[in-house]
Amino acid sequence: VDNKFNKEQQNAFYEILHLPNLNEEQRNAFIQSLKDDPSQSANLLAEAKKLNDAQA
């Protein structure tokens, strides 16, 4: 993981990586967004979790 991520951002990265119901395309999009703007990690994680739950 890129060293410019802080602890919260790293946690978001790993959580998104391991959400079971996202397809690869969705997962990659969230990860790319996280890399583009790490400050949005909490929002991105919340969105990813919502999508993950919706696809459960």
Rank of each mutant, 00 (worst) to 15 (best):
residue 41 S to R: 03
residue 40 Q to E: 13
residue 30 F to N: 00
residue 41 S to Q: 03
residue 37 D to M: 10
residue 27 R to K: 07
residue 15 E to L: 06
residue 16 I to W: 01
residue 4 K to P: 08
residue 28 N to V: 06
residue 46 A to C: 12
residue 50 K to G: 14
residue 35 K to C: 06
residue 18 H to A: 12
residue 39 S to I: 13
residue 11 N to L: 15
residue 25 E to D: 13
residue 37 D to I: 07
residue 56 A to Q: 15
residue 31 I to R: 02
residue 26 Q to T: 07
residue 2 D to M: 09
residue 10 Q to E: 11
residue 3 N to Q: 12
residue 56 A to M: 14
residue 31 I to N: 03
residue 48 A to N: 00
residue 56 A to L: 12
residue 39 S to K: 12
residue 35 K to V: 12
residue 11 N to K: 11
residue 35 K to T: 05
residue 45 L to T: 07
residue 36 D to H: 11
residue 24 E to W: 10
residue 28 N to H: 12
residue 37 D to Q: 06
residue 22 L to K: 00
residue 9 Q to R: 01
residue 46 A to I: 15
residue 52 N to C: 03
residue 24 E to L: 08
residue 23 N to S: 03
residue 39 S to T: 07
residue 51 L to V: 13
residue 3 N to Y: 00
residue 20 P to E: 15
residue 27 R to W: 01
residue 21 N to T: 06
residue 9 Q to A: 05
residue 20 P to F: 05
residue 14 Y to L: 14
residue 21 N to H: 07
residue 17 L to I: 05
residue 46 A to K: 15
residue 50 K to T: 13
residue 43 N to W: 05
residue 56 A to F: 14
residue 12 A to G: 04
residue 26 Q to I: 06
residue 34 L to F: 11
residue 7 K to G: 08
residue 27 R to L: 06
residue 56 A to C: 13
residue 26 Q to L: 04
residue 37 D to E: 13
residue 46 A to Q: 13
residue 14 Y to R: 13
residue 45 L to A: 07
residue 47 E to Q: 13
residue 51 L to N: 04
residue 18 H to W: 12
residue 44 L to A: 14
residue 34 L to E: 00
residue 15 E to I: 12
residue 16 I to E: 01
residue 36 D to T: 13
residue 33 S to L: 04
residue 25 E to K: 08
residue 18 H to K: 07
residue 54 A to N: 08
residue 25 E to M: 12
residue 41 S to M: 07
residue 42 A to F: 11
residue 47 E to A: 09
residue 54 A to P: 09
residue 21 N to F: 10
residue 23 N to K: 15
residue 33 S to M: 10
residue 36 D to L: 12
residue 40 Q to G: 07
residue 1 V to R: 02
residue 41 S to I: 14
residue 29 A to D: 13
residue 21 N to G: 04
residue 24 E to Y: 06
residue 30 F to D: 00
residue 53 D to R: 10
residue 21 N to S: 10
residue 42 A to D: 11
residue 51 L to R: 05
residue 7 K to C: 12
residue 54 A to I: 15
residue 56 A to N: 15
residue 49 K to W: 06
residue 1 V to S: 13
residue 16 I to R: 00
residue 42 A to W: 13
residue 18 H to S: 13
residue 19 L to G: 00
residue 36 D to K: 07
residue 45 L to W: 03
residue 18 H to L: 13
residue 46 A to S: 15
residue 20 P to L: 08
residue 40 Q to W: 09
residue 7 K to M: 10
residue 36 D to I: 13
residue 21 N to D: 09
residue 11 N to M: 13
residue 43 N to F: 10
residue 24 E to T: 03
residue 28 N to Y: 09
residue 19 L to C: 10
residue 46 A to D: 15
residue 50 K to A: 12
residue 49 K to Y: 08
residue 13 F to G: 03
residue 5 F to P: 14
residue 23 N to Y: 07
residue 39 S to R: 06
residue 49 K to C: 08
residue 41 S to Y: 14
residue 15 E to F: 01
residue 42 A to S: 06
residue 46 A to G: 07
residue 8 E to L: 02
residue 20 P to H: 08
residue 25 E to A: 13
residue 35 K to M: 12
residue 37 D to W: 09
residue 18 H to F: 10
residue 34 L to R: 00
residue 32 Q to P: 00
residue 31 I to V: 08
residue 45 L to P: 00
residue 25 E to G: 10
residue 20 P to G: 12
residue 13 F to A: 08
residue 28 N to E: 10
residue 28 N to K: 11
residue 30 F to C: 03
residue 6 N to P: 01
residue 41 S to G: 02
residue 18 H to C: 11
residue 13 F to W: 12
residue 35 K to Y: 08
residue 42 A to G: 10
residue 41 S to H: 15
residue 36 D to G: 06
residue 8 E to G: 04
residue 55 Q to D: 06
residue 54 A to V: 10
residue 31 I to D: 01
residue 5 F to T: 03
residue 14 Y to H: 10
residue 52 N to K: 02
residue 35 K to Q: 07
residue 51 L to W: 05
residue 50 K to D: 08
residue 9 Q to I: 04
residue 51 L to C: 06
residue 12 A to R: 04
residue 42 A to E: 13
residue 35 K to H: 08
residue 4 K to V: 14
residue 40 Q to M: 11
residue 19 L to A: 05
residue 25 E to V: 06
residue 19 L to E: 00
residue 39 S to Q: 06
residue 6 N to A: 01
residue 55 Q to R: 01
residue 3 N to K: 02
residue 2 D to V: 03
residue 31 I to S: 08
residue 47 E to D: 15
residue 56 A to V: 07
residue 5 F to I: 04
residue 11 N to S: 11
residue 31 I to Y: 08
residue 4 K to F: 07
residue 6 N to H: 02
residue 42 A to K: 07
residue 26 Q to V: 03
residue 22 L to M: 05
residue 23 N to A: 10
residue 35 K to I: 04
residue 8 E to I: 02
residue 44 L to V: 07
residue 53 D to Y: 01
residue 45 L to D: 01
residue 28 N to F: 14
residue 13 F to V: 06
residue 3 N to L: 01
residue 33 S to E: 08
residue 16 I to C: 01
residue 56 A to R: 01
residue 54 A to H: 12
residue 3 N to E: 05
residue 31 I to Q: 10
residue 25 E to L: 15
residue 3 N to F: 00
residue 13 F to E: 05
residue 33 S to W: 08
residue 29 A to F: 14
residue 49 K to H: 13
residue 8 E to Q: 02
residue 43 N to R: 09
residue 32 Q to W: 10
residue 21 N to C: 15
residue 21 N to A: 14
residue 7 K to Q: 13
residue 36 D to N: 11
residue 22 L to N: 00
residue 54 A to M: 14
residue 9 Q to T: 07
residue 17 L to C: 15
residue 22 L to S: 00
residue 30 F to P: 00
residue 20 P to S: 13
residue 24 E to V: 10
residue 51 L to I: 15
residue 10 Q to K: 06
residue 56 A to W: 14
residue 5 F to M: 03
residue 37 D to C: 03
residue 25 E to C: 14
residue 1 V to F: 02
residue 9 Q to N: 04
residue 41 S to N: 03
residue 2 D to E: 04
residue 14 Y to G: 03
residue 21 N to I: 02
residue 16 I to V: 07
residue 3 N to I: 05
residue 34 L to H: 00
residue 36 D to C: 09
residue 44 L to T: 12
residue 52 N to T: 02
residue 26 Q to S: 04
residue 3 N to T: 06
residue 43 N to D: 09
residue 2 D to A: 05
residue 6 N to Y: 02
residue 22 L to F: 03
residue 3 N to R: 01
residue 49 K to F: 07
residue 25 E to P: 09
residue 43 N to P: 04
residue 24 E to Q: 12
residue 54 A to Q: 15
residue 40 Q to Y: 13
residue 51 L to K: 10
residue 37 D to R: 08
residue 48 A to V: 04
residue 29 A to V: 08
residue 53 D to F: 15
residue 36 D to R: 07
residue 45 L to N: 02
residue 49 K to A: 07
residue 39 S to N: 10
residue 26 Q to R: 02
residue 38 P to C: 04
residue 6 N to F: 02
residue 19 L to V: 01
residue 44 L to N: 03
residue 31 I to W: 05
residue 32 Q to H: 14
residue 5 F to Q: 01
residue 53 D to Q: 03
residue 14 Y to E: 12
residue 35 K to P: 01
residue 36 D to M: 06
residue 29 A to W: 12
residue 44 L to Y: 05
residue 16 I to N: 00
residue 15 E to W: 10
residue 42 A to V: 12
residue 37 D to A: 10
residue 24 E to P: 05
residue 13 F to M: 15
residue 2 D to I: 05
residue 41 S to P: 03
residue 11 N to Y: 14
residue 51 L to H: 15
residue 11 N to E: 15
residue 7 K to I: 11
residue 38 P to Y: 02
residue 13 F to S: 03
residue 48 A to P: 00
residue 10 Q to G: 05
residue 50 K to S: 11
residue 37 D to F: 05
residue 17 L to D: 09
residue 18 H to V: 08
residue 17 L to G: 06
residue 15 E to S: 10
residue 32 Q to G: 12
residue 30 F to Y: 07
residue 5 F to E: 09
residue 27 R to N: 02
residue 52 N to D: 07
residue 50 K to N: 12
residue 27 R to E: 01
residue 3 N to V: 05
residue 19 L to S: 02
residue 8 E to T: 02
residue 10 Q to H: 04
residue 23 N to E: 05
residue 56 A to P: 08
residue 23 N to G: 15
residue 47 E to F: 09
residue 14 Y to M: 15
residue 14 Y to P: 01
residue 49 K to E: 04
residue 7 K to P: 12
residue 36 D to Y: 10
residue 53 D to N: 13
residue 12 A to V: 14
residue 7 K to W: 06
residue 27 R to T: 10
residue 40 Q to N: 05
residue 43 N to Q: 08
residue 17 L to K: 12
residue 31 I to C: 11
residue 51 L to D: 05
residue 40 Q to P: 02
residue 49 K to M: 06
residue 7 K to N: 13
residue 53 D to V: 03
residue 9 Q to L: 09
residue 44 L to S: 03
residue 35 K to A: 06
residue 5 F to Y: 07
residue 4 K to A: 13
residue 43 N to K: 14
residue 13 F to P: 01
residue 33 S to Y: 07
residue 54 A to W: 14
residue 19 L to D: 01
residue 35 K to L: 05
residue 29 A to S: 07
